[in-house]
Structures are given as C-alpha cells and as structure tokens.
Write a protein that binds this DNA or RNA. Structure first.
Length: 439
RNA sequence: CGGGGCGUAGCGCAGCCUGGUAGCGCAUCUGCUUUGGGAGCAGAGGGUCGCAGGUUCAAAUCCUGCCGCCCCGACCA
C-alpha cells in the first residue's frame, strides 16, 4: 500500500477523551473513531488488525474442530423468554421494537439462538460432539463504557458453543477449547493465563478466564511465576487425543487467580520468590454449563439407550475487538504501538526520505515490489512529508520493521533497517535488508 | 446507577467570574526557502461558541431545561 493512497489520519496530539494508553494510541494512530459512547468506527488501519486477530482465532477454532456459522445481531425477545433471561438481563440488553410492535433485542450473546438452531436439527447422539461458533458484533448497553475498545458497548466477539451427550464428552470439548485458546493468544504474541473464574450471569460450573498481563490491566491478578513457563501445544496438537494432562498442568499445578476469587491462604503456599502480583485484562472465557439452556429450551438428543436427554453444553468467548486494546496495553513504548508480527496491520514500512530523487525512488520501488511479492504487505511512505514526521508516524503505528531509504545511505550503497520492537538499526545493502525481513 | 467535570475551527486549549461584533498553538491551503527524528518566513481559508427557551439595548459569558461526552465508584467481556 502506498501511503499517499491510503487513509491514515494520524494525530500529533491526543484527543481529550482518551485516558488509557491503548485508547490514546489507537486514536492517534488513526485506527479508530468514536461515534458514540462505547461505539467506534474502525478506520482502515484498525480494521486490518481486527481482521488479522479474527483470522487467527478462526484458524485455531477450525483446527480444534469447531464449525463456523453466522447468526444475526438481532434476536427475538421470545427466544430469550424461553430461557428466562429476557427478564434477567436487565438494562444492559438493548431492546428494540420493530414496526409490527414485535420485541427484538441486539444480542449480547447467543446461547439461546444456538440452542434453538441445534434443537431444530439434531436428535441423535450420533451427530455429537458438535461445536459451532461465529464471529459477530454484540451489544451490551454498559452503564459506563470506557477504556476505548476494551469496554465498548458494541464489540466483536467470537463465541463457540459445544454440544455433547454427557459430561465426559463435554469436558473433552471444554479441553479442546482450552488448548485452542492457549494457542490463539500465543500466536498473537500474548501471554494469556487461564485463571479460575466465577461464571457470571451466563451461569455454569466449570469456567476459566484467560488473562493477559499488562501494567495497565483492569483487574488485579495473583500468580505463580512458573505458570508463565508452561509449554503450549504446537500446531500438531491432537485434538482427538486426551488433552486433560495439558489442562491439568495449566489449571492445578501453579496458583493463578483474579482478585475476585483470590485465596490469600493458598497463594501463600507458593514460594515467596515465585509470587507475582500484577494486573490483567480478560480476553477470553470458557464455560461448561451443562443443561442450563438445553433443559428449559428442550434441546434433547437420544442416547444409545434410546432415552432422550438435554444436551450438555459449553460456551467459549474471545473478545476480538478488545484484543486490540489488550495487545497494545501489553506492547507499546513512549513512541507508540509495537505490533507483534502476527497481528501487525502491515509487515514493514518503507520510508522514502527523498521522494523524487531518481536513485531513492528506484530503490524504494524495488523494495516495495520485492516485499509485496514476498507477502510482507509493505506500507510505502512516498509522501512529501519531512523525515521527522515520517519517522514519528511510523513508530506510532508500530509496524514490526522499518526500511529507511535515503540519498545519504544510498551513496554508500546502504539502506537502514530498523526493528520496531528493539529499536535496533542496521545499515546494509538493500538486498541484505530484504533478506533479513523476509528470512 | 451514585458522585464529580467538560462541551468554543479537524485536534489541543484560552476567553465566561466582571455581558459590548470570537482568540492562540497545531493541522489545512498558497508562495519562497528548507529536507536523515514532528522546519522557517510571508500570506489565506475555516466557528449557527452542544441544543432550546429566558433575562437584557446587547449573551460564548447570566438563568432554566434538555442532549452529548469524560473521570471516580458500583457493575461488566
């Protein structure tokens, strides 16, 4: 992408409404525009990152055997009356009436609808297990939206729902999602730690929150440092195999809890040198809730014995839009965002220090073509801005690499390659710089 | 939902107390000079002062109501 053709409204000054660093940086980097409290337009740069995160989640869900579908944002109130939650949910639910005076709601989650879909088609245990997921916008009318995308009212979420004949099967389904979550967050460059959670209004018994450690996190967390070194299953993980040992290692070997459920006495059993008190951001949550919805909504399947039983369910959420905030909170410096490679909106920024100079133009174009065909998605700054502004903007938007090309370097046969994360800069010939980036 | 605060040019702000024809910085546009970490000079454009009432000869400024947004707390992904 050539910057002159792109839409990247970076701001030199910080808008007054933004308090926390991720919100400030997203506004300054031209990723996001607030349209109302907790409601945002995703500008091109932000949208690119959103799609990258979404795609990682999608790939890991698919790998774990989940099947993608797409449910609507609007749901009928009657569906929620079946589970009793239409009354329970309160003012957080955005309620809408259509021209026929029919009561609708903008979905804050989809347990009822997925249960309705499942029961319409599945009658036999032979169709199980199943895991259906979608990635869709949700709305919760928060009393006090804040922290930018971290606590918006409208947010993009992946939610998966598992269906099994019995608890044993449901636990295996839970374990598959648990492992998939470990992999998802790691791929995004995050350390997300599963912590035992209260299940909240969605209800259920077995539940974990996946917490990203960040100094500016919303809640306090307590953990055993050693949990950070636990291995995460690779791409070749066998989702048909027994994942219980992995889950057990992450959930029972070392202490890790949010302040809500913190047990000081148990934490004290952790060796003093290993105890960490930190802050964290929840980016995902897993629940097993059995027949909480299937029973009242009559989603039943016949078992091998011919007896009909409510299906055993779990749900598994990932806050896709919130993850942008979490990643920035966990990865930034004074100058701006530092994107992990896997979610960076562009892989490399090419900075032309002298557009119009024949040698510089030729080197830039050649680098742009090579990096494009290598799939690096370069952002090529060929605008007429001054160098200082270009450097500052490139640092702000946080692309992993900067390839800086100017007449002074070229006279010596070199370009400059900067790694955003470390700040390390090297002068080297263009072909070597390209090899370093693509290698 | 309790408490506090703020709405003035695209962004950041001053002006309001003490009413008298709306200002600063950045950004934008034009010209010249500059060009490796947010340049200089000269000029220009851009605002129903959140909205609606009221008081007054006169309202950004005083009064009333409403709307929007932010912060702390409770709550939540």
């Amino acid at each position: 992408m050539r910057l002159s053709r792109y839409f990247l409204p970076v701001l030199k000054e910080t808008p007054a409404e933004a308090q926390i660093v991720s919100h400030r940086l997203m506004l300054r980097a031209g990723m996001l525009r607030q349209e109302a409290a907790g409601i945002y337009a995703w500008l091109p740069l932000g949208f690119r990152v959103l799609r990258k995160i979404e795609q990682i989640v999608r790939e890991e869900m698919d790998r774990a055997g989940a099947v993608e579908l797409l449910m609507p944002t609007l749901q009928l109130a009657d569906l929620w009356r079946e589970s009793g939650r239409y009354e329970d949910y309160g003012a957080e639910m955005l309620r809408i009436t259509d021209r026929h005076e029919r009561e609708l709601l903008y979905g804050p989650t989809n347990e009822e609808m997925i249960t309705e879909i499942f029961r319409a088609y599945v009658r036999s245990y032979k169709a199980l297990p199943k895991n259906l997921y979608h990635i869709q916008w949700k709305f919760r009318d928060e009393q006090r939206p804040r922290f930018g995308v971290m606590r918006g009212r409208e947010f993009l979420m992946k939610d998966a729902y598992s269906f099994d004949l019995d608890e044993t099967g449901a636990k295996a389904a839970y374990n598959r999602m648990f492992v998939a979550y470990l992999r998802c967050f790691k791929r995004m460059g995050l350390s997300a730690i599963p912590m035992k959670a209260e299940s909240g209004p969605i209800g259920g018994e077995l539940s974990h929150e996946f917490i990203v450690l960040a100094q500016t996190g919303e809640s306090g967390v307590f953990l055993d440092r050693r949990i950070l070194d636990l291995p995460i299953p690779g791409e070749d993980v066998d989702y048909d195999g027994d994942l219980e040992p992995v889950v057990t290692a992450w959930t029972s070997r070392f202490y890790a809890a949010t302040e809500d459920v913190h047990d000081a006495a148990r934490f004290a059993e952790t060796p003093e040198g290993e105890r960490v008190t930190a802050r964290g951001i929840e980016v995902g949550q897993t629940f097993f809730f059995g027949d909480k919805y299937s029973k009242p909504m009559k989603a039943v399947v016949s078992g091998p014995d011919g007896v009909e039983r409510p299906v055993q369910m779990g749900s598994y959420g990932v806050g896709i839009s919130r993850l942008l905030g979490a990643i920035i909170e966990a990865s930034h410096d004074e100058a701006g965002i530092i994107w992990p490679d896997a979610v960076a909106p562009f892989g490399v920024g090419i900075i032309s220090l002298r557009p119009g100079d024949a040698l510089v133009d030729a080197a830039c174009e050649s680098a742009y073509a090579a990096l494009t065909s290598a799939g690096l998605e370069p952002l090529y700054d060929e605008t007429d801005e001054r160098p200082g502004g270009k450097f500052a903007a490139m640092d702000l938007i946080g692309l992993p690499w900067q390839l800086i090309i100017g007449p002074r370097g070229l006279a010596e046969g070199n370009v400059e390659l900067k790694r955003r994360a470390s700040g390390e800069r090297r002068s080297l010939p263009l072909d070597q710089a390209l090899a370093a980036i693509t290698g």
